[in-house]
Design a protein around this nucleic acid. Structure first.
Lengths: 235, 235
DNA sequence: AGCAGCGAATGTGTCGACAATCGGCATTGA
DNA sequence: TCAATGCCGATTGTCGACACATTCGCTGCT
């Protein structure tokens, strides 16, 4: 079915001994899941995955445990693990949480980012503008571009607990939603403009405005998803 | 040192076969950590813990993995696991996140709780009032009482992602802070009164007010912690 | 006396094996 | 023909063992 991870560890020869096998496996599983190699809801057989990645079941189980912690897979006792399913409904809930959390992050970032950091972020946005997919206003990787900016802002909040919550859990789960083709990222150029506005507010240390803009930014995306969900429901 | 979990599984005779050994271990470890049997920053030796709980290292490692997911322990490759340390600084950050998240939860709950649920919650508050420790305005278990109410509100939000984020991560971590004796819960009666006010707003489906009250409620606690932190810093 | 280097012991990461359990299939009975 | 039951293979949960890394304690040197 998929050739990328078929034969026993073709590239595992270059494993970093400083990191443990289980953590390496975790990364590869995350990659496989968000890229769709392991499709949503698919049952994950431990023996199969184990020799697909060329390890024993021990580290694999640890990796699965971590994925469960990220809520990328769901395990049920004596029934094995399945890739978590994130549909439109879950995505709406996720975006509602994002709205609250990233709004807060944005306010904090406005209070603590210095000129250098702002400049660096501005450069990032300019880079994004130049991307061909964005120029065509039909971004395929726009989801990554989006979270790229958002992630930086979140990090700049200076609240490690907040960062852990978003980067360690929520973002992973958002990435699980696979059918991005539609409404959500239909307007990368508009999103990019909003990013600039947000950064403007941050630059002028206007936390209140920055939060409002960020919330509105995410809220718009959420509304778009909700419409899509409503359309799907009535169908 | 501690007698509670010394001899090899005295009470493990009544293990529920429907749940796995690892998950049972997880619960017991959480209990041991938040109760202080395993003190903050303490190194967790796998072999020692394994036969202390009467299992092998396999399930224990899985339990540790889960605890790491909850951010109750920190593991470093080839160096073992330590109980996570949550000091005043982390607690402040945690409360900042709580403010955003529970404020949101409260607004949602106001929109979706029906009369029965409100009644049930009201009963809970009345029960709380009757507790001797609360009556003495010197609540020892006030932290539990507090999260009790908060947890119910969060659940009533109807947003499973939000619930998972708070109940699955943040609350566990908040419970890690051990030195609660001071400012934070010095005024259980006041907190209780605020709970009633919040519930009033929820009852009248005033989401906006409910959110404001909840945020203020948590914000007050956070300020209290911050003062304590400032005092500690200058000391 | 303090510190560097070395060896032992403990501990972590990983593996293979075994038992209990679950899902699917065929058989049997109505 | 359909439903219930028993059986079989496959998978999960758990265990013990081994190799390497890390750490601690000791010895000897400066």
């Amino acid at each position: 079915m998929d050739r990328s991870v078929d034969n026993p560890d073709p590239d595992a020869s270059e494993v970093d001994p400083s990191e443990t096998l289980a953590s390496h496996l975790t990364d590869r599983l995350v990659q496989a899941i968000v890229s769709g190699d392991l499709s949503s809801g698919e049952k994950l057989s431990e023996p199969e995955l184990a020799n697909r990645f060329g390890t024993s079941r021990g580290p694999l189980r640890e990796a699965l445990q971590r994925l469960e912690g990220m809520r990328l897979v769901e395990r049920r006792p004596r029934q094995g693990a399945r890739v978590a399913m994130v549909g439109l409904r879950e995505l709406v809930d996720l975006y509602a949480v994002r709205e609250a959390l990233e709004g807060m992050a944005c306010r904090l970032a406005a209070g603590s980012m210095d000129a250098d950091e702002v400049r660096s972020l501005r450069r990032l946005l300019v880079d994004h503008e130049r991307r061909p997919d964005v120029q065509a206003d039909q971004g395929y990787f726009q989801a990554e571009v989006l979270t790229d900016f958002h992630f930086r802002v979140v990090q700049a909040s200076g609240n490690p607990e907040l960062v852990a919550m978003l980067a360690g859990q929520l973002y992973h789960r958002v990435r699980l939603y696979r059918y991005r083709s539609s409404q959500i990222n239909r307007r990368p150029q508009r999103a990019l403009k909003e990013h600039h506005q947000i950064l403007d507010a941050i630059e002028s240390h206007d936390g209140e405005l920055a939060e409002i803009l960020m919330r509105r930014h995410i809220h718009a995306a959420r509304l778009s998803i909700e419409q899509q969900l409503a359309a799907e429901m009535s169908r």
